[in-house]
Design a protein around this nucleic acid. Structure first.
Lengths: 340, 340
DNA sequence: CTGTTAGCGCGTTCAC
DNA sequence: GTGAACGCGCTAACAG
């Protein structure tokens, strides 16, 4: 079922068949009908590889993500997938499991795979050799979630969001707020959120506590519980992402603390699942699917214009705040008593 | 950076360059080194489309899933992705949003996209015209999660799993158990699980209650809460999937029932997130990533052998049971008193 | 409006 | 062990 066969059956040349599929109005209605009929009969579908080889466009986008197991990225990929699909593009996702080496491999594979462009979530744009390669090659790409002045990014300002959140918590009566993060410097996002925490605390006239680092990949509540039982027990915990916030909630329970009475917990990400929990997770929400969608749209637009998306076109999407049920004024402001 | 360029720089013919990449031992070590050097210098990567066009193999697998937002499928896709990647295959995922029409479109797109084979999760194999098409074409594919004698499937026996679960609940003292499902007949999986419920109840000498259908896509607790406040309040709820179970948990809270004291809740799927909740979700676990992995392996093996995976090769993977913290013996067996 | 033809980059016979 | 040449299926110039 090649174009040849269809041409033969329709009694026309291959060029005409090609036109019917690519420039339909350049062909007479009658012949077009003829060709379409023949195509129907044979179940003909233009061969993507041949078309790609000839046009040098694959209509495929590469996507590089840390993992699909974190719903944030699954939601984002869903946004990417539907936007791409709507535009007639296929996507080729590759996950890195947060490993730097995998980032490079992924980019190499996609480059060899003839994708027209790539959307990636890297752990840290500043450290990524894969990105340098892309940039050097002039290959079109957009970063998603990442923020860096030298790269085209679609992201949310996590620093400002967390700073604002801290202000909100302070206004609610919280004074002892701990930031909980995954492995230090694991990602630029985590770093930015931690910076926002520090900035927010200082803006409120409080001194930032050290960031509590917990192993993100293995599910260990140990560090958290210890911290919650320690002498400097906070009244609020900010999870650097929603998955960490969930872990905080569990740690609170294991430590015998009531939420949000004795301990408030707030996350960051706005995964859909958080809204369906027994206690709806309070969190800073990101428009995850929309981040993906806009990345696709920008990338496709750039492809059409023939040059890679410029860093100067980077955009920040607005975050939101889901009030939820895991955050409230502290029951007994046991520390603020001293302050007053 | 085509094969031509490399050949020129290495002072050999294109055929030799090709051999270096495909049949390395068919070329003299010295010339090979020469070519490899030239390839390094130019950053040459064999063009995937040209190779596909020539060999009629794309080394790409299509994947059709309902959605990525349900972690079950995200976990499965992760398994598919890593297995495929390890074998040197790319994947092209397409989501259907549980829409039958999208299933056909997805299959059509993948067919046109020259994938070597497909892995799909359809809503119901018996009703799927997309599958018929695949089968008629003799195109290699494997169903994942679905179960149907006429198709090659990698799945878990949900019917038996739920039946066993009911037995377990009864043994714990539960007599009034309600099955909670999404839109009726939404999927063969849901149907099988409901059958398992009925079978389990009858095996325990109890009469199955009508399945409680709740709108799965919109988050509405209304139906559930009403049921929990009704005269025939059950002591245990079985969610047809983990997301529904989470909703049950929330409904319990809104209805003022304690879990697992007044109400036990058990899910089905074993999503990773369930294990990280304040109350660890009790659930029937499926090896989601493994389901994906095995689908890939079977499919690739079949591709190598040159014929589509046969329905007779279908395999059931073992399920597990996560004890969790949302299921226990009923506090006050208020109904079973009458029974005794 | 339609047909002829030349490659896109590669793998694979065949000679040598 | 290596090279020359053909064709995978398609699109884009160019003729007509």
């Amino acid at each position: 079922m090649s174009i040849q066969e269809v041409a033969r059956r329709a009694g026309v040349s291959v060029a005409t068949v090609s036109r019917v599929f690519n420039l339909p109005d350049k062909v007479a209605p009658e012949t077009r009908a003829l060709v379409e009929q023949a195509a129907q009969d044979t179940g003909y579908l233009p061969n993507a590889s041949a078309r790609t080889l000839r046009t040098q466009r694959s209509r495929a986008l590469g996507v590089v993500l840390p993992t699909l197991v974190n719903p944030v990225f699954a939601e984002c990929l869903q946004g990417i997938a539907s936007a791409a699909s709507a535009a007639g593009y296929a996507i080729v996702p590759l996950t890195t499991d947060y490993r730097l080496a995998h980032e490079e491999q992924a980019v190499a594979k996609l480059l060899a795979g003839n994708v027209d462009g790539m959307i990636l979530v890297v752990s840290d744009p500043a450290e990524s050799s894969a990105l340098q390669r892309l940039q050097a090659l002039g290959h079109p790409y957009v970063l998603c979630y990442n923020r860096h002045p030298a790269h085209p990014c679609v992201s949310v300002d996590g620093e400002q969001a967390v700073a604002a959140l801290v202000g909100r918590l302070v206004q609610q009566g919280h004074r002892h707020i701990t930031m909980v993060s995954g492995q230090r410097a694991a990602s630029d996002r985590a770093q930015q959120r931690c910076r926002g925490y520090a900035a927010g605390m200082r803006a409120a006239g409080l001194s930032p506590a050290p960031v509590l680092e917990v192993p993100f990949l293995e599910p260990s509540q140990h560090t958290l519980i210890e911290h919650l039982r320690g002498p400097h027990r906070p009244t609020a915990l900010i999870g650097s992402n929603d998955l960490l916030a969930l872990r905080c909630l569990r740690a609170a329970r294991l430590a015998g603390l009531s939420v949000p009475g004795q301990l408030s917990v707030v996350g960051f990400d706005g995964i859909a699942l958080g809204d369906d929990l027994s206690l709806r997770l309070s969190t800073i929400t990101q428009p995850n699917a929309e981040l993906g969608r806009q990345s696709v749209e920008w990338l496709l637009q750039a492809l059409q214009e023939g040059l890679p998306p410029p860093p100067s076109g980077s955009r920040s999407l607005a975050h939101g705040f889901r009030v939820g049920e895991t955050c409230a004024a502290p029951d007994i402001p046991h520390f603020s008593v001293e302050v007053c």
